[in-house]
């Protein structure tokens, strides 16, 4: 009888462990902080001139908070843009990771996106996030944006897009 009870307990513990392992693959999370970016191209004041055409946000325009899963995890952060409501294909939006964040992050690492990566309308991987401890959180991973292709050749209008970030297991 004692043996059977122990067996049930072992089964339960095994189930819990399986549940934790299962959870470890899906439990990463992310929040997107910082600010929306309102670009202000300087007004043209001289006939014949065009806009400079390339504008960059502050280094810490967007701040990502990344949390790893319960167990060890290898994840990546990807991004794409969505017209909101009007965008032009001649406008190119790029993104750069300017730091590795803050917080207690023993034996974890961020790698990639140390140069500008051009965003598309479909997800593209920006950087990898590897954790070696339980429930690791990295705060304030700073992201910088760049828009190029701004020109008087584009129709006069208000342009906007939404940059969507996703964290996923590798």
């Amino acid at each position: 009888m004692k043996y059977r009870m122990c067996h049930k307990q072992i089964q339960l513990i095994a189930f819990i462990l399986l549940l934790l392992i299962y959870k470890s693959g899906i439990a990463q999370s992310m929040s997107v902080g910082g600010n929306n970016w309102s670009v202000s191209p300087p007004a043209i004041t001289e006939a014949g001139k065009n806009y400079v055409g390339i504008y960059e946000s502050p280094d810490n325009q967007i701040l990502l908070t990344l949390t790893g899963p319960l167990l060890l995890g290898n994840m990546h952060v990807s991004a794409h843009y969505e017209a909101n409501p009007l965008w032009d294909n001649n406008l190119k939006l790029s993104i750069l990771r300017t730091n590795s964040g803050t917080g207690l992050c023993l034996l974890c690492s961020l790698s990639g996106n140390e140069n500008y990566i051009q965003l598309n309308t479909t997800d593209i991987t920006l950087f990898n996030f590897t954790t070696a401890a339980l429930l690791t959180t990295v705060n304030n991973v700073a992201m910088k944006l760049k828009v190029s292709g701004v020109s008087v050749v584009l129709p006069a209008a208000t342009y906007g897009c939404k940059v969507v970030f996703t964290i996923s297991p590798n």
């Binding site: 992310m30 929040s31 929306n36 944006l145 208000t158 897009c161 939404k162 940059v163 970030f165 964290i167």
Partner: peptide, 10 residues
């Protein structure tokens, strides 16, 4: 939450 977004406009 595994996704989030910010806006760009001009």
């Amino acid at each position: 939450q595994t996704t989030g977004s910010k806006n760009v406009s001009f």
